[in-house]
Simulated scan of single mutants.
Amino acid sequence: MRETLRVAAYAMCIRDDQVLLARWTDTQGRPEWTLPGGGMEHGEDPYDTVRREVEEETGYLVEITGLLGVRSRNITISRRFRRTVHHHGVGLVYEARVTGGELRYEVGGSTDMAAWHPLADVPGLRHVDLVDVGLRLWRERPVTGRVTVPGQE
């Protein structure tokens, strides 16, 4: 079985009881909301990754105000020709504050929309579990920098 590793950095931007989310399309073509952020480029510091990715996906410039935690996820993915891949994703979740720029949509990237959503509305949105992880890290601020979500204990 092939093994892959992806390291990424994401931002929790909260203001006025709203969270900034980016929309991407899953493998079945369905739109889902996620935290703005993405994969590190070779040699890039994750701090720089999250700032770059937020600007690319939302148009905003952000100041990193803290490291909330790390999400480590292992999944097995079925690929074409009956090949399977064991994928390990490591995501650093930062707290960030918008300092400039203007909200806009990403063109030609991995997301197609960005928007502020009331925190109370998040459970009703079609979203990836990374959003739940980020919100728990932001609310609970565990010393270990780790939380689990149902189904991923």
Rank of each mutant, 00 (worst) to 15 (best):
V128K: 13
H117W: 13
R104T: 13
V107C: 01
D48W: 00
G101R: 08
D112W: 05
D132W: 04
G108W: 14
R80P: 02
R83V: 12
L67I: 11
L5T: 06
R23T: 07
V90I: 10
R141S: 12
V54L: 04
D16Q: 14
L119I: 15
E3K: 09
R71K: 08
V98A: 00
A22M: 04
E106G: 06
W116T: 07
E153G: 10
V98G: 00
R6W: 07
F81Q: 06
L135W: 11
D26I: 12
A22Y: 02
L20Y: 09
P142A: 08
V50Q: 02
T34I: 13
R52P: 07
S78H: 12
R83T: 08
M40V: 01
T49R: 02
A120Q: 13
E153F: 15
L130F: 06
D16V: 01
R104K: 15
D129C: 09
R23P: 09
D121L: 12
G37E: 00
I64Q: 05
Q152F: 14
Y60L: 04
G43I: 03
A11N: 10
V19D: 06
V7T: 03
G124S: 15
S110C: 11
R6Y: 03
R73T: 14
G89P: 03
H127V: 11
R79E: 13
Q28A: 11
L92T: 04
